[in-house]
Amino acid sequence: MRTVLFACIVLVLPLPVMGTPADTIDVRLEDHQWEHRLLFVFAPSDASGARAEQEAAFEEHDPGFRERDLLILTVMGPSKGTQRAAPAADPQPLTEAAARRLRDRFDVPEDAFRVVLVGKDGTEKRRDPEPVTARSIFDTIDAMPMRQREMREQDGGGE
């Protein structure tokens, strides 16, 4: 019995280690509806100064992102991107098709910088042409009726 169990474990272990296209995420907005708020950062390239400034503005704000169920999706150039659960979380690469689809969906030119906030209902809540502060994004979210309800529920059931 131990030999069979050992053989099963050995056969399964190499699969997650292999670098395959399955490691990439094919993001679709409808998959996140009612679960996550999405913050898109579109940049002309990985080396964009505005992208670096935006990432610096979000540093050390992981708890705020997590409290608000806010995922960060960064799209760089025409077809490269990542998804993170919070600013300091490990980035997961997006498929090239997903990155292109998101840039098209939000009508952001390849040479433009944009920050786009999408609510849990799947609609665009805000769009900025330059880097924004985490506090500014949190204030926008905290003013939303759904977030107000979430905060009441966290504070004791909305009495």
Rank of each mutant, 00 (worst) to 15 (best):
A43N: 12
G19P: 12
H61Y: 09
R84T: 09
E59Q: 14
Q154S: 14
S48P: 09
R84K: 11
A86P: 01
E124C: 04
A86Q: 06
G77C: 08
E150D: 14
G64V: 08
P14F: 12
E150P: 02
F113R: 08
I137A: 06
R152G: 10
R51C: 06
F58M: 01
G157V: 07
R126V: 00
E55W: 06
I137Q: 05
P129L: 10
V41F: 05
D23K: 11
E110V: 12
R28F: 02
T140L: 11
A7V: 05
L38M: 13
E60M: 02
P91V: 03
T133Q: 13
I72Y: 05
E35L: 07
K120N: 09
R149I: 04
V4I: 13
D26S: 10
A7H: 07
D104E: 14
G77T: 08
G156E: 07
F65P: 01
F58P: 06
G119M: 09
E30N: 11
P21R: 02
P91R: 03
T24Q: 07
I72K: 10
E60T: 10
E110I: 09
L38Q: 11
E60D: 11
P91N: 07
K120V: 07
R149G: 09
I72C: 04
V108S: 07
A97T: 14
T140E: 15
R51Y: 11
F106R: 13
F65I: 06
R103D: 06
P14Q: 14
R28T: 10
L73P: 00
A134F: 03
F138V: 03
P93V: 00
R100Y: 05
A56S: 15
A134P: 09
E53N: 12
V27Q: 02
A99W: 08
L70Y: 00
E96H: 06
T95V: 09
R28N: 15
S48I: 12
Q83A: 01
A112C: 04
D128P: 04
A89N: 08
P87A: 11
R28I: 03
R105F: 10
S45V: 07
E67I: 07
Q148G: 08
V10W: 15
T24F: 01
E67T: 11
T20L: 02
A86D: 04
A57P: 01
E55P: 00
Q54R: 03
T3E: 11
V12I: 03
S136N: 10
A98F: 09
A47G: 06
A97P: 13
A7N: 09
V41I: 14
A86N: 01
R84P: 00
L13Q: 10
T140Y: 13
C8V: 06
D90R: 09
P131N: 13
P21E: 06
C8A: 14
E30S: 11
F138R: 05
M18W: 15
G158A: 12
D111P: 00
D26M: 01
I25N: 04
P131C: 13
D26G: 00
T3S: 14
V27A: 08
V27E: 01
D31R: 06
H61I: 04
E55R: 13
T95K: 00
F138A: 05
P78A: 13
